[in-house]
Nucleic acid binder design. Structure first.
Lengths: 233, 233
DNA sequence: TAGATTGTTAATCGATTAACAATC
DNA sequence: TAGATTGTTAATCGATTAACAATC
């Protein structure tokens, strides 16, 4: 009945999580002047299988040309649009410790659609200081400017994180990136993604240990006594 | 034939990735003096469903007691052992920009089984400086001390990341945490986990946009003309 | 047209969940 | 024993993959 792109609704979560990777790869291609790319090439650049890439892109609509490939600029725009990156998003970082400080100065945000707009801390010794060109404000100051469509970043110690999340939610924030190693409880409709640095290392430790066991030989763990082998066959 | 715990091999990846979360929750419980916990309570603390928790734990063996629950200290030890956290792991951080600097000073590593042992940069202006109590060394310096069973952390700009990964792999590192927004190519047997901060925000932007569309009303996007409804059935 | 590559189908694989028998 | 809770089964769900018909 309609020409509208097929599945606007219901893009699988796993696909959404990969769109930024494709976007980045397309940006790199565009920078080098490439204007058409096949699913095979783009998949290679993004570190995925081409079948997966094509399936992912098919959820956005039909932006490729059979026998030719994808127009780099066009596809990049479509993905950016799907992710809501036609305009920049404002970000509020709460917690100006080591990590918050580094995030405030991180250049990778600005180049990929985000503008760090507020730095927040509760420590009077830190409020008022200038970090990365911004003045650190208190939570009350933040609440006084209504942060519309802001993404909140929590970089406080875990003990403070839930209270911070509660205040952000009260202000109308419904997207939160949490660096504090703890579980946050938020109402329905609020999206929390978490980045836990120590957890990432612990997952690597698991693999490191198991690689190590293979190298050292499993014999150490469960000494194998070789049966005298029959000379048959 | 044997009493040995069932599935030592073949713990699903999704389960491994959750074990650190359980470990953290158990640590918090132990700190408050709780000595027994049910799957329902622990799941609540870890932010998962109890059925998932029990299934995850069943891969490690049978450490619960029916009708009672899990011994907090015991379970914590078993998970730590499974993850390879009986001893600390040494970490080498490469790239002493904002992020590398913050990671070097991050207190969350030490408390969860990791010791930042080397800070590496290639900039002569940075080599020799002291950061978080450690002297920044060059790559050649790092290569001279053979880093056994080290976990490598890459916090360089994306342009340098592949070369850094290659050098780490040459030194025998086979577990890498990559903060540079780029795809790393490594040989089989080397495990790379990646943390891309801007990607996390872009995923949130997707949800933020779609939440916003719902609030603003979908009518704006695809004006619906109501068909005069037949009064049948 | 012939060659190339997309978009989609169908099969497979892995992860989640509910339910409950086993058992403390 | 009666009540509680684990460990496991079986069903469901979602994601990945290979293969290929559609089509530029």
């Amino acid at each position: 009945m309609t020409d509208a792109p097929a599945a606007r609704r219901g893009i699988p979560g796993a696909t959404v999580a990969r769109l930024p990777v494709y976007l980045r790869a397309l940006g790199a291609l565009a920078a080098t002047g490439v204007d058409t790319v096949s699913s095979e090439e783009l998949a290679e650049a993004a570190g995925v299988r081409s079948a997966k890439l094509r399936k992912d892109l098919s959820y956005l609509g039909s932006y490729g040309v059979r026998g030719v490939g994808y127009d780099v600029v066009r596809l990049r725009e479509e993905i950016a649009r799907e992710l809501g990156l036609q305009h920049d998003w404002a970000v509020a970082i709460v917690g100006m410790g080591n990590l918050g400080h580094a995030l405030a100065a991180y250049s990778g945000f600005a180049t990929r659609g985000f503008r760090v707009a507020w730095l927040v801390d509760e420590d009077p010794a830190i409020i008022g200081r200038t970090i990365a060109g911004l003045t650190v404000i208190s939570f009350d100051d933040l609440a006084s400017e209504p942060p519309q469509g802001v993404i909140g970043v929590i970089a406080t110690p875990p003990t403070a994180a839930q209270a911070v999340a509660d205040r952000l939610v009260d202000m109308g924030v419904h997207s939160i990136l949490n660096f504090a190693p703890c579980v946050l409880n938020v109402p329905d409709g609020v999206e929390v993604r978490k980045v836990d640095l120590a957890t990432e290392l612990q997952i690597l430790a698991f693999h490191e240990q198991h690689t190590r066991e293979e190298i050292d030989g499993i014999a150490d763990l469960a000494p194998v006594v070789e049966e005298p082998k029959e000379a048959t066959s």
